[in-house]
């Protein structure tokens, strides 16, 4: 990497961080959302759901322990949507042009933007894990370290999907609807709240949806990493999905596909 490319990366990360710091409510919203699930939903279902024998947990695992990786995924999913929203906002406000006329190649600029978005998500994820620890969800301490690459990879995949989504959404006003359309099916149709084995017993179609859902793989990657284990299938699926989504996003942003519409309007 050249010095200029590195400075460009640092500049993009710095801008994302400065914007994040000015939007403090975003940080608290990202914490409150999963904490409501953990404290209310988790407590309510603790005695109703038997998760004994579900890997990577041992016997007698509490429901809250199970859903914490899924809620980490929820933080990352919202962060991916935030990346998408911010791209659409920048496009509408005109500031994306400043990024696009930089002398660095487009794929590099979008990758920097993606990585910057994931870096901003890390404090949110670890703040949530700290709150979960206080609530009694305590994976091994080493798990917090092992989870870091998994969280980064899951964040990259969801951010890349966010970038792709931003290339498909034409106007800012449409974005709220698109977010609801994406977030809820992706979250509920995954292994974030219930294991695949339990889903198969209840509904084979839903189980198949959850098995194919890339978000399930991101969640499983984080879940296993938190307990010091590696889920190879989840790793491969997450990497492949990241590369495919990113390639499609770059292709969409290339050749003015996105700006052509706004200029033609």
């Amino acid at each position: 990497m050249t010095a200029k490319a590195l400075r460009c990366f640092v500049g993009i990360v710095e801008r994302e961080f400065l914007r994040f710091l000015r939007q403090r409510s975003r940080f608290f919203a990202s914490l409150v959302r999963p904490l409501v699930w953990l404290v209310i939903f988790g407590t309510g279902l603790r005695t109703m759901v038997d998760l004994s024998g579900t890997p990577p947990y041992g016997p007698g695992v509490a429901y809250e322990d199970y859903i914490v990786p899924g809620l980490v995924g929820l933080v990352l999913l919202f962060n991916g949507m935030q990346i998408a929203l911010s791209m659409v906002f920048d496009r509408e406000m005109g500031s994306m042009k400043v990024l696009l006329v930089s002398p660095q190649p487009l794929w590099y600029l979008l990758t920097c933007r993606l990585v910057a978005g994931v870096i901003v998500a890390l404090p949110q994820v670890y703040a949530f894990l700290a709150c979960a620890w206080l609530w009694g969800v305590r994976p091994p301490l080493s798990g917090y370290l092992y989870a870091l690459p998994a969280v980064i990879l899951a964040g990259l995949m969801l951010g890349a999907l966010g970038l792709l989504l931003s290339s498909l959404v034409e106007q800012l006003e449409n974005f709220a609807g698109v977010m609801n359309f994406v977030i809820f099916p992706v979250f509920f149709g995954s292994t974030a709240l219930y294991p695949l084995s339990r889903l198969s017993d209840a509904n084979a179609v839903l189980a198949e949806v959850a098995r194919l859902n890339p978000f399930s793989h991101a969640v499983e990657l984080v879940r296993f990493a938190l307990y010091g284990r590696l889920d190879i299938t989840a790793l491969v699926a997450t990497v492949v999905m990241t590369v495919v989504a990113m390639a499609l996003a770059v292709w969409r942003y290339d050749s003015g596909r996105i700006l052509r519409r706004s200029l033609a309007a």
Binding site: A5, R7, C8, V10, G11, I12, E14, R15, R19, P103
Partner: peptide, 17 residues
């Protein structure tokens, strides 16, 4: 939401200064 200096620093970074 950025200051004038931060906005300009962002542009400078994009151009590798």
């Amino acid at each position: 939401d950025l200051t004038v200096a931060q906005s300009l620093r962002y542009h400078a970074a994009l151009h590798g200064l």
